[in-house]
Amino acid sequence: MKAAIIGYGRMGHEIERVLSERGHETALIIDAANASELDAAHLAGIDVALEFTTPATAYANLRTCIEAGTAVVSGTTGWTDRLAELEALCRQRNGALFYASNYCLGVNLLFRLNRQLAAMIGRVGGYDLTIGEVHHVHKQDAPSGTAITLAEGILAEMPGKTGWVDYAPGVGQAANRVEDPAEAGEERIVIRSVREGEVPGIHTVTYESEDDRLELRHTIKNRRALALGAVVAAEFLCGKRGVYTMDDLLRIS
Rank of each mutant, 00 (worst) to 15 (best):
M1S: 13
K2Q: 14
A4F: 02
G12Q: 14
H13G: 15
E16R: 11
L19E: 04
S20Q: 13
E25D: 07
D31Y: 07
A32H: 11
A32E: 14
N34W: 09
S36H: 04
S36T: 01
E37W: 01
D39V: 09
A41K: 01
E51V: 00
F52E: 06
P55Q: 04
Y59C: 02
Y59D: 12
Y59K: 09
Y59H: 06
R63V: 00
T64H: 03
A68Q: 13
A68N: 13
V72L: 03
V73S: 01
V73Q: 01
G78L: 08
W79F: 08
L83E: 03
A88T: 08
L89P: 15
Q92P: 01
G95E: 02
F98V: 09
A100D: 08
A100V: 10
N102A: 08
L105F: 05
L110C: 07
L110H: 06
L113F: 05
I121R: 13
R123M: 02
D128H: 06
D128V: 02
H136Q: 03
P143H: 07
S144Q: 03
G145P: 07
T146N: 00
A147I: 14
I148Q: 10
G153Q: 00
W164A: 10
A168I: 06
P169H: 12
G172I: 09
Q173H: 12
A174C: 08
E179T: 14
P181W: 11
A182I: 11
A184D: 15
R188S: 09
I191V: 08
R195H: 12
V199A: 04
P200Y: 07
H203T: 06
T204Y: 11
Y207W: 15
S209H: 05
D211K: 10
D211L: 02
R213V: 04
E215R: 04
R217V: 15
A225V: 12
A225T: 14
V232C: 02
C238T: 13
G239I: 02
R241L: 10
G242T: 05
D247N: 14
D248L: 06
L250Y: 15
S253V: 07
